[in-house]
């Protein structure tokens, strides 16, 4: 509130930076694309672009759900294990009854995933167990269930019906089904977060939990819901995973939770809650996917992938923090 520096002007500059957080990633992606293309022209082909989309479809779906959790100041470390368990269960269904309607596998997976998510949601919202602890626990529990369920056996490609394997890869609409499903899912999340009261309540709870309660927002129910939705998304991802990779293994999607959090954080979602957008997260996932894709094209050892991912996360949070810090300097009393 100091008189000598009217806050209005600086505000505008800052909102500009904050508002165009997505544009920042997009520009970064473009620069990267140009650089990679200069070195490896194969990058800029329709085929390669389709490959990238195919690769980030599953990641986008789960990362978007993870984003909803992070907006409420939570985190879901169990998504990888939910994918692993649901993948195995769906694969078992197809092995046991190959004539099971392929289309039904999607709602089945989502239902199974949502149930597992509901368990997370219960212990976090009503049991008031900190999200990181609760999902750390269920990460082990669900992964343990995969082993108990399958007794260590894997389901391989030949045990799955061809129609199911085509579910993710078929291109009746020009793009692979999986990409279309991911786009539809992203649109649904976008609509939910921006155009429904419940979606806005997710932001409200993450932005100021106490005020949310005062405003009559059912905080516990909202928190429960985001974990159910994350489970649902993981379940959907699991079906696509089995269909795409044509197998279900005991270590399916092991460690996948890290990538979903990475895509969110790179996409501008704040771990302290209240902030995050669908386009941002999609760009985050795209950036991660592009790096994975371009390494072999640039003949860089794929072993660099993980290290680069880590550096990307660190860069993203440092940049976000610098923006935030400048805005806080202004926000002083």
């Amino acid at each position: 509130m100091s008189a000598q520096h009217p806050p209005a002007r600086r505000n505008n500059l800052l909102t500009l930076v904050a508002r165009y957080r997505e544009a920042g990633i997009a520009i970064f992606i473009l620069i990267l694309a140009v650089l990679v293309t200069l070195r490896a022209p194969a990058f800029l082909t329709l085929n390669n672009f389709r490959d990238i989309l195919l690769n980030i479809s599953i990641l986008s779906i789960v990362a978007l759900a993870q984003t909803m959790v992070i907006i409420t100041k939570g985190i879901d470390l169990s998504v990888g294990s939910i994918i692993g368990l649901v993948a195995m269960m769906v694969a078992f269904v197809f092995k046991a009854s190959p004539e099971f309607p392929v289309v039904l596998s999607l709602p089945l997976g989502m239902l199974l995933g949502a149930t597992l998510g509901a368990f997370n949601g219960l212990i976090i919202s009503y049991g008031r167990v900190p999200p990181i602890i609760a999902t750390l626990g269920t990460l082990s529990i669900y992964r343990g269930l995969v082993f108990f369920y399958s007794q260590g056996t894997w389901i391989n490609s030949f045990e799955l019906p061809a129609a199911f394997k085509q579910l993710s890869k078929g291109t009746p609409l020009g793009l692979p089904n999986m990409v279309i499903i991911a786009i539809l899912f992203a649109l649904a999340v976008y609509y939910f977060l921006n155009h429904t009261r419940t979606g806005r309540n997710i932001y409200a709870v993450g932005s100021n939990a106490e005020a949310a309660q005062m405003a009559g927002i059912p905080r516990q129910r909202i928190i429960f819901l985001v974990y159910v939705l994350t489970g649902l998304a993981a379940g959907l991802a699991a079906v696509l995973w089995v269909s795409r990779f044509e197998s279900a293994q005991t270590n399916t999607a092991l460690g996948f939770e890290l990538q979903t959090v990475a895509a969110s954080v790179v996409g501008g979602v704040s771990i302290s809650g209240g902030v995050g957008t669908v386009p941002g997260v999609l760009l985050g996932a795209l950036l991660l996917g592009m790096i994975d894709n371009s390494l072999p094209l640039l003949r860089i050892s794929p072993f660099w992938q993980l290290a680069l991912q880590g550096l990307l996360i660190l860069t993203a949070v440092v940049v976000d923090n610098l923006i935030l810090r400048r805005s806080q300097r202004r926000g002083r009393r």
Binding site: I75, I132, L258, V261, A262, V265, I271, S272, F303, W304, Q305, L306, A307, L308, Q309, G310, L311, I313, L314, V317
Partner: peptide, 15 residues
Amino acid sequence: PPLVVTLGTYAFYRG
């Protein structure tokens, strides 16, 4: 936040 920092280095160091 320590969670994000060490998540980043979790990937980086393993990398």
